[in-house]
């Protein structure tokens, strides 16, 4: 079976050709490519580089989930998503997202969806390095809301399971015991 999603976290420099080759498909007339790169300034401060810290397992899992959501919305697309882990100088490539589709609209829209969701949901953190030699971890998007959504979803699933299996809901019968 031909894979239609590739996700990874890499400590090697990211390769644009690999992304293009993965999504390239004779049935697809559009390839949209997003490249995130380290810029030399942030809020008026000269930046010399960024260190990317990542929880590898959870990040790949979240990347996969985001890509599957995109495929549910835009059927038939192929997706390559890779994020760099480690230190990059200005101009270094931090993330590559390639999406191919039969037509350009879905390729553009899916690519935009994936990068926006990644920024809100993936466990990735940036430490900026400045000309004076100091560094700072950047503020970001709290995952508290995501945890609350997950909790609501699990409660729904628990209720369904209890209805179908007669589970107790507090773990006494081995049904998971979530509060």
């Amino acid at each position: 079976m031909i894979q239609s999603i590739h996700t990874s976290v890499s400590s090697n420099f990211l390769n644009i050709q690999n992304a293009y080759d993965f999504v390239s498909d004779p049935a697809h007339g559009a390839v949209d490519l997003f490249i995130g790169a380290v810029r030399n300034h942030h809020e008026g401060k000269p930046v010399t580089g960024i260190t990317y810290d990542i929880h590898d397992e959870l990040a790949v899992k979240e990347f996969q989930e985001i890509c599957m959501e995109a495929q549910n919305i835009w059927e038939g697309i192929k997706i390559y998503l890779s994020h760099y882990k480690g230190k990059l100088d200005v101009g270094g490539i931090s993330v590559i997202i390639a999406v191919s589709a039969a037509h350009r609209t879905e390729a553009f829209e899916a690519c935009r969806y994936i990068i926006e969701e990644l920024k809100k949901r993936a466990p990735v953190w940036k430490q900026e390095h400045y000309e004076l030699g100091n560094s700072e971890w950047l503020p970001g998007h709290s995952l508290m809301a995501n945890a609350a959504q997950l909790e609501a979803r699990l409660l729904q699933e628990d209720k369904k399971t209890q209805k179908s299996s007669g589970g107790c809901g507090n773990g006494a019968c081995g049904c998971g015991g979530r509060k």
């Binding site: 990068i115 990735v124 953190w125 709290s142 609350a148 699990l154 015991g177």
Partner: peptide
């Protein structure tokens, strides 16, 4: 894990501060 998740045994966890990838 949600804030009301309960631990009854030893656990290996991680703490994830607000995220900012890309």
């Amino acid at each position: 894990l949600p804030d009301n998740y309960i631990f009854e045994a030893n656990a290996k966890l991680c703490i994830l501060p607000p995220v900012c990838g890309g």
